[in-house]
Design a protein around this nucleic acid. Structure first.
Length: 582
RNA sequence: GCGUCCGUAGCUCAGCUGGAUAGAGCAACAGCCUUCUAAGCUGUGGGUCGCAGGUUCGAAUCCUGCCGGGCGUGCCA
């Protein structure tokens, strides 16, 4: 399956080199080698040229010749194409290709004339479901929801950019026994469920549940009322849900993520389907009764005593579990939403649960060609390398965390621009802080735990949002000074002459290929790394070359314009807002 | 115990399907603003890639076994 396709000069050039090598091989050794045996890769260092092939080393044994002599015979007939500037044999036998200015001019021109920077939409588009964020009603969103929300949002943007039909699913936790005690507590204290501070109420309810047996009894009875659909109970529950959803919306809006009310498909949505689902699975003997519970046994899962560990889908008391809801949600996504690919953006601690879910779906026979996968992520750690908590040991709430980052950004901006108007200061600080939080998360390999450091994420040096945004801001400033804009500058004639310009061009050309690879494996940190290198190369270019009022102004502005577009496109995929001043 | 993930410079992290002398940033030291945003650029020092085997022309990368750490492991989510 193709998740994203790049089709432009670079890729055509890779094909060109490959087929040239193939022809040369046939000519020199009367031997046909298969396409996929000839890898063409980007060189590790600029002194080795722009592309390289290791085919001479691969074939040395079979041909009983040294890689160097094989390489030598291969490159002789290769030197004709105007895209090749120089071809050399080096090191243990690499064939290094140095590309010509014509190649870079053509590549950049083609990229610049494409509205999608050379990325071709996937045909046909796939229905891709991204399950992310998934906060719980009756709890404020906290740092534990941050990664799923940010990573999921970026995955949605990435796959949308690649031309897919992406369906967001926010599987919020709005059902379960805990609502019995919460509702009972609110009734007892005559609290308004629309406006109550649910986190505090929840904690108090839990405490009373543990300490007061009479309350616990009433809470349990309330669960039954809720499940039976008692009108008064449902009304309170509904208010609680609305209360929480307003809070979720506020967080999503402040973070600038795409999730909205229409993406919410809560646990309660599947309530009616749980019993029928269990019954069907029982009838087909996929689900069996074990120790009083209804379970599905799956190969390869063991408990602590090395016995088969089943997935429990109905408790011995008749209650359902999150495995049941997830199973029903999966069925819904496959059958009703016609999912081709489903991506669960969840904490890596849930891996086993989802392994079981996927295995169950296969056992039931729901899965044909569709792909179930997850974007697993590690824990957010504090500077002490322990899970990120407040000083008192509580989970860190999201809104105060965002506010704090904004304050920090403000103080940094004031140092540089003491005279900025309040509105500009606030707006820039907000953009910078949100970008910093997102970028810090996305730039780390998501499977690893990551260290949350406000200091580092807002640093102006290194692989941070401010550093990248600064490259963008510098370009916008250039265009203001030149009285020109990006689309106009894009039409300028390129005339690349220096090593730094060529390096920048070479890196730009790789954008579509990077995006293609990133979309396949959902490696967002790789996009960050790519953009970081682009920003670094641009800063170097900017520092070493005069741009305005230089005889190369037209060419250099065209180059800057393309950098601007690629940065902006990259930021857009990461969910980062561009700014024009900082 | 079993499963799973992680282990790369003092610190935070890259290293793509195996490829050349393992790369950035921070921190340390030394330079660069009468021209486009110095929130920048240039240079120096710093690594037994957890350990040991194996596969290979070639291993941080693949395989096996250890060591260390996180997480999960039957009716919570």
């Amino acid at each position: 399956m193709n998740f994203c396709k790049s089709n432009q000069t670079v890729q055509n050039t890779v094909h060109l080199i490959r087929s040239d090598l193939q022809a040369a091989f046939k000519h020199a050794f009367d031997h046909v080698i298969e396409d996929d045996l000839i890898e063409i890769q980007r060189t590790s260092q600029i002194k080795f040229g722009h592309f390289q092939s290791n085919i001479a080393m691969k074939m040395a044994k079979a041909l009983k010749q040294s890689p160097q002599s094989i390489g030598q015979r291969l490159i002789e007939p290769l030197t004709q194409h105007p895209y090749y500037k120089q071809i050399t044999i080096a090191g243990p036998g690499f064939i290094n290709f140095f590309m010509s200015e014509a190649y870079f001019n053509d590549s950049l021109h083609q990229m610049g004339s494409s509205p999608t920077l050379g990325i071709q939409s996937s045909h046909p588009p796939l229905n891709i479901i991204v399950d992310y964020s998934s906060p719980n009603v009756a709890k404020k969103m906290h740092v534990g929801h941050l990664r799923s929300t940010i990573i999921g949002d970026s995955i949605v943007r990435l796959l949308t950019f690649c031309g897919h039909r992406v369906i967001r699913q926010n599987h919020i936790g709005d059902w379960g026994t805990q609502f019995g005690m919460l509702i009972e507590y609110l009734i007892q204290n005559a609290s308004d469920p629309q406006s109550a501070d649910v986190t505090t109420a929840y904690q108090a309810a839990k405490k009373q549940f543990d300490d007061d047996p009479a309350f616990a009894e009433r809470a349990k009875a309330r669960v039954v009322l809720l499940q039976q659909g008692d009108a008064a109970t449902i009304a309170i529950w509904q208010s609680l849900v609305e209360n929480s959803e307003r809070h979720f919306s506020e967080v999503y809006e402040r973070l600038g993520v795409l999730l909205n009310a229409a993406d919410i498909r809560p646990e309660s949505y599947f309530n009616d389907q749980l019993q029928p689902l269990v019954d069907t699975l029982t009838q087909s003997e996929i689900c069996v009764v074990d120790q009083g519970a209804k379970v599905i046994f799956l190969d390869g899962f063991k408990d602590q005593e090395d016995r088969a560990l089943p997935m429990i889908i109905q408790k011995s008391d008749g209650g359902f579990l999150y495995a049941t809801t997830d199973l029903a949600a999966l069925q819904f996504r496959l059958e009703r939403l016609k999912a081709d690919r489903i991506i669960y953006c969840v904490d890596s601690r849930q891996q086993q649960h989802f392994d079981m879910l996927f295995a169950a779906a296969k056992k039931i026979g729901w899965i044909d060609q569709q792909q179930l996968e997850y974007a697993l992520f590690g824990t957010v750690l504090g500077e002490d390398h322990r899970p990120f908590k407040t000083r008192s040991g509580d989970t860190v709430a999201l809104l105060p965390l965002i506010d704090q980052a904004i304050e920090k950004a403000k103080s940094l901006i004031i140092k540089k621009h003491p005279n900025w108007a309040k509105a500009q200061l606030n707006q820039t600080a907000q953009s910078l802080a949100i970008s910093a939080i997102k970028y810090a998360d996305l730039s780390n390999d998501k499977i690893k735990n990551y260290l949350f450091s406000e200091e580092k994420m807002l640093a102006f040096d290194g692989n941070t949002a401010p550093y990248l945004l600064n490259a963008y801001v510098r370009i916008q400033s250039l265009f203001r000074k030149a009285n020109c804009d990006v689309p106009t500058a894009m039409n300028g004639q390129l005339d690349l002459s220096t090593e730094v310009e060529i390096q920048l061009a070479h890196h730009l050309c790789y954008f579509p290929i990077e995006i293609e690879a990133i979309a396949k494996h959902l490696e967002l940190h790789r996009l960050c790394h790519y953009l970081y290198q682009l920003a670094m190369l641009f800063h170097r270019f900017y520092e070493h070359h005069p741009i305005l009022n230089d005889r190369s102004q037209e060419s250099r502005l065209a180059l800057a314009a393309l950098v601007s577009r690629v940065l902006a496109q990259g930021f857009s995929i990461l969910g980062i807002q561009t700014i024009d001043y900082m």
